[in-house]
Amino acid sequence: MSQFELLSRYGPRMLEGLLITIELVAISVTLGALIAVPVALARLSASRMLRALALGYSFFFRGTPLLAQLFLVYYGSGEFRSFFESIGLWWLFRDAFFCALLTFTLNTGAYQSEILRGAIRAVPRGQSEAAMSLGMKPRWIMLRVVLPQALVIGLRPLGNEVILMIKGSAVAAIITVFDLMGATRLAFARSFDITVYLYAAVLYLVLVETLRRLWDILERRLTRHVVRAAP
């Protein structure tokens, strides 16, 4: 089979898989960000119980392989099928895509929470003290003063986390999610042509480089005042 025939036969399926990869990563990163904010605040809380719970969540998902977490969710949920059926959630755990989405969300949420926690700590204390002198309540100081600055500080490591999720999402193919890697494995199983993996690598590279450039533009726009203030 010529390379033209190979691309014409399997190229469209690989492009569909690329869209599934983008969808999977975009949704999981967005939901992970929603988890990261309360977890990061819990890590900084004065409550020992909240700190312990947040630390346990972060410790587990940052300290174990993503593939092991995926297997625990996808295969482990079958052990509790009757329970999930009784509460009406089995439709979620019986679907490989949703299992991958849940796993990726919990995984990236743990990493994003640590990034955000570090960024919050990096915001100068004088910002909070100035807001307190104006009579602002602590929660509004956090929401309106500290968090916006922390997001700017953490923008670069957050971008790196998204890139790592794009590359890590390839493990979803192992549980039959036909993302880019899943479609590539199928193409190789039918064609036995190793170059399909080269094409997949190129697509991943294009996706990551495109995101990196867009992230650079976003970072420059959000930090333009910092750049101008630099000597």
Rank of each mutant, 00 (worst) to 15 (best):
G126M: 06
P124E: 14
F98Q: 10
T108R: 11
W91H: 11
E114P: 01
W91E: 09
L102Q: 02
F93N: 01
T108A: 08
I120W: 07
Y111A: 07
A119H: 12
T108V: 15
S128R: 15
I120T: 10
E114R: 03
L116C: 10
W91A: 14
R121M: 14
G126D: 06
G118W: 06
L106S: 11
F104G: 11
N107A: 11
G118N: 00
G118A: 04
R117H: 12
L102D: 08
R94F: 07
T105F: 00
Y111T: 08
A96T: 02
I115Y: 09
L92R: 00
T103Q: 09
Q127A: 05
L116K: 00
L116T: 04
P124A: 15
P124Q: 04
Q112G: 02
F98M: 15
A122E: 13
F104D: 00
Q112N: 12
S128D: 15
A119L: 13
C99M: 03
L116Q: 01
R121S: 14
I120L: 12
P124V: 03
G118H: 09
F97Y: 15
V123K: 05
A122P: 10
F98R: 10
Y111R: 05
G118D: 00
A122M: 13
F93M: 07
I115P: 05
R117E: 08
Y111I: 09
G109A: 08
A110S: 13
A119W: 01
I115A: 03
V123L: 05
N107T: 09
V123G: 08
I115S: 00
N107R: 09
C99V: 08
A119S: 15
A100T: 03
F98V: 11
F104I: 09
S128T: 15
P124M: 08
A119K: 10
A110L: 11
R125T: 06
I120N: 08
C99R: 02
G126E: 04
S128Y: 13
N107F: 06
F97C: 00
S128L: 12
T105Q: 03
R121A: 15
T108H: 10
A100W: 08
A110T: 10
Q112H: 08
R94V: 01
R125V: 14
R94E: 10
D95G: 06
R117L: 12
R125W: 02
L101G: 09
R117K: 15
W91M: 06
R121P: 04
S128I: 13
A110N: 06
A100P: 04
I120V: 02
V123H: 07
F97L: 12
L116H: 04
T103Y: 06
G109T: 02
T108D: 12
F97I: 12
T105Y: 00
G109F: 04
L116A: 04
A110M: 08
Y111N: 01
G118L: 07
A100M: 12
A110I: 10
L92Y: 07
F104Q: 02
A119Q: 12
L106A: 14
F97Q: 05
W91N: 15
W91S: 15
S128K: 13
G109Q: 04
F93E: 02
E114D: 01
A122S: 15
G126A: 08
L101N: 12
E114H: 05
C99P: 05
A100D: 01
Q112F: 07
F97D: 07
Q112T: 04
G118P: 04
L106K: 12
A119D: 03
L92F: 02
S113W: 02
W91K: 02
G118T: 03
E114A: 03
L116P: 03
S128C: 11
V123W: 02
